[in-house]
Design a protein around this nucleic acid. Structure first.
Lengths: 150, 150
DNA sequence: GTCAACAATTGACATTCTCAACGATTACTG
DNA sequence: CAGTAATCGTTGAGAATGTCAATTGTTGAC
């Protein structure tokens, strides 16, 4: 017989609410990510921008779409990375309105170190989860994260 | 043979980053929750406060701890619910500093409707997930969400 | 060639987070 | 028991974030 003897941690309803748990888990891992990235002078936001600059090299418009951010937020994020010498804006030869954001060699190197720091922190956070569980969780999260319900 | 033919949706690194996916999935489900709750005049934040008022009846301090919010944020959230007649502040007889937040009958009724709206929306969002997957995901999220790594 | 659409940017505004301070009350310590 | 430290709710300030409109330069369609 299975009964729920677990004392309420938040409230019975919220403890079982996947959306609530997502919000909370996200806040906790984001805080851990920011702590890990502070050593290399980044936050999760700038880290995500740097990742795209290093791995994709998109226009700022595409950056905004991929990260689901307002284009106006991209400006400040790219400004900060650019002033640090980690990315550069290049005029798209095919469309002079668009400016492409690509990582400089220093940016590529910083991204490698940042990624290592993030991986270390996550290995710690997610230590108790098996590979099989991890696959299920990742697949679930991707389905939700990339669903276009909004 | 398994190869990853999937085109990058964000970037190869971020597409596999559980923390990034958590943030994104959380943002999407929170937006869906707010949309569902707008019909009853709530947001996910006030909904979570109402849930605790209805199911637990904690002090504001405890409310802040359970929801991981700053005590100063609780004030405005309770103010709004109280002015709507859905919760009331009672002086804790054992500690006159503390004020207990409990749902009124109208609050209990509102919570029932709000919960139904949230459940409907989530049934839609999470339709494609099996019970077995759901259990794994919930267990994972609870482990992360309730880990006291910070 | 004109006009609508789009990219990046700026600025305004609301929301949220985080922190410090305060009055009232309680708990601790000698 | 007196005095001091800690706690609870509250207020207010400042940073970070989200959202949206307006502007300039450029492109594409008719």
């Amino acid at each position: 017989m299975v009964t729920d003897d677990t004392p309420a941690r938040v409230s019975p309803t919220l403890d079982a609410d996947v959306s609530f748990l997502l919000a909370r888990a996200s806040a906790i891992t984001a805080a851990a990510g920011n702590r890990a990235l502070a050593a290399v002078g980044l936050k999760v936001r700038s880290y995500s921008v740097l990742a795209l600059a290093a791995e994709v090299g998109p226009s700022q418009r595409e950056l905004a779409e991929r990260l689901r951010l307002d284009p106006s937020q991209i400006v400040a994020l790219v400004d900060a990375l650019e002033s640090g010498g980690y990315v550069e804006r290049r005029q798209d030869p095919a469309d002079r309105r668009a400016r492409t954001v690509t990582a400089t060699p220093a940016g590529v190197e910083l991204f490698a170190r940042a990624r290592a720091a993030v991986d270390d922190a996550q290995r710690e956070s997610f230590a108790a989860i098996s590979d099989a569980e991890s696959d299920v969780v990742r697949a679930f999260l991707q389905r939700i994260a990339y669903s276009d319900l909004s």
